[in-house]
């Protein structure tokens, strides 16, 4: 049943399962994809998981096409706010292979979340770290060697090397799963914390979904009411009224018809000011459980 009702939704995962209010601004100017400006490295890794389909040449090519569409769209939208961004895509390879085999915990993302991902230890975080470790080792650092203290984990080493080698301001790490006929969710991780590197796991090849994932890592607030498992945006109607074509509200529509609204622009750092009437839109409160659910 689960597998049928899940469409390619984007899941927004908080760093901890909080029962308190959350403010979307916590993700602003945070972690390795801090502000949408300057030079941005998008490091993409194609993963052959056991239950998702192995990547074929065509799937990789068409996914890269979707990503290129996203990068052009982001550049175009940023220009509207007077910002020039330089996006450099890098596709990770290991021993000249374009993909890596790594079994996904629980088989799929949707299964992982329905089985309590984040309730204790993030298995998906471990999964991503394991992959990052292999790619980090394959990259030689140019210039200054990595500092010995503080000790960096594999993910941090990977990001530091990419930043240093390419003189980049921001790094986005994407893990791609080939789900051309399997419907699964996509998710972003650690974008409200700075203790671990943020990253995204993407299913399918929808360019609108990739764009929403990209902006989420820069701090954009997901405005789709289906996106949160434990919280809800209190003043969602305000976003629906004022930013009907915003990507974070409509990532199931065609990317060509979407834009970055002022609310999202503020959160990703394209603007430094926002009208005070949107202050309540940032608030996300825990979903109140119905009586019948409380006693389950």
């Amino acid at each position: 049943m689960k597998y049928i009702i899940y469409s390619t939704l984007l899941f927004f995962i908080f760093s901890c399962k909080s029962s308190k209010d959350i403010d979307a601004r916590w993700a602003r100017d945070n972690n390795v994809a801090a502000k949408l400006e300057g030079k941005i490295i998008v490091y993409t890794i194609f993963v052959d998981s056991k239950k998702t389909l192995p990547w074929s040449g065509f799937d990789i090519k068409s996914t890269k096409d979707s990503l290129n569409k996203v990068f052009n769209w982001v550049k175009h939208e940023s220009k509207k706010y007077g910002k020039d961004v330089d996006i450099v895509p890098i596709y990770g390879t290991l021993n000249s292979k374009q993909t890596i085999k790594k079994k996904l915990p629980h088989g799929s993302l949707s299964a992982a979340f329905s089985e309590g991902e984040y309730s204790k230890v993030s298995k998906l975080g471990k999964w991503a770290n394991g992959i990052a470790k292999k790619y980090e080792k394959s990259i030689k650092i140019s210039g200054e060697p990595l500092p010995k203290k503080p000790k960096l984990d594999s993910f941090q080493k990977l990001v530091t090397k990419l930043k240093q080698n390419h003189k980049a301001d921001n790094v986005v790490v994407f893990f791609m799963l080939n789900n051309y006929y399997i419907s699964d969710v996509s998710a972003t991780f650690n974008n409200m914390t700075d203790s671990e590197v943020e990253f995204a796991i993407n299913s399918g090849k929808s360019s609108s979904l990739f764009a929403a994932q990209f902006l989420s890592l820069f701090g954009a607030q997901n405005l789709n009411k289906e996106a949160y498992s434990s919280h809800e945006v209190e003043k969602l109607a305000l976003a629906q009224e004022d930013f009907p074509q915003d990507i974070m509200l409509n990532y199931e529509s065609d990317l060509n018809n979407l834009n970055i609204g002022r609310h999202t622009a503020y959160l990703v750092g394209l603007t430094e000011e926002i009208n005070s009437k949107y202050a309540d839109l940032f608030k996300m409160s825990p979903i109140k459980k119905k009586k019948s659910e409380k006693f389950k």
């Binding site: 389909l53 192995p54 990547w55 074929s56 040449g57 065509f58 292979k97 374009q98 993909t99």
Partner: peptide
């Protein structure tokens, strides 16, 4: 098949379509 990686070991109908 024209682009590498070529389709690997997967189930039969899936394999044909891939």
């Amino acid at each position: 098949e024209v682009l590498k990686p070529f389709v690997k070991k997967i189930k039969s109908k899936e394999r044909l379509i891939a």
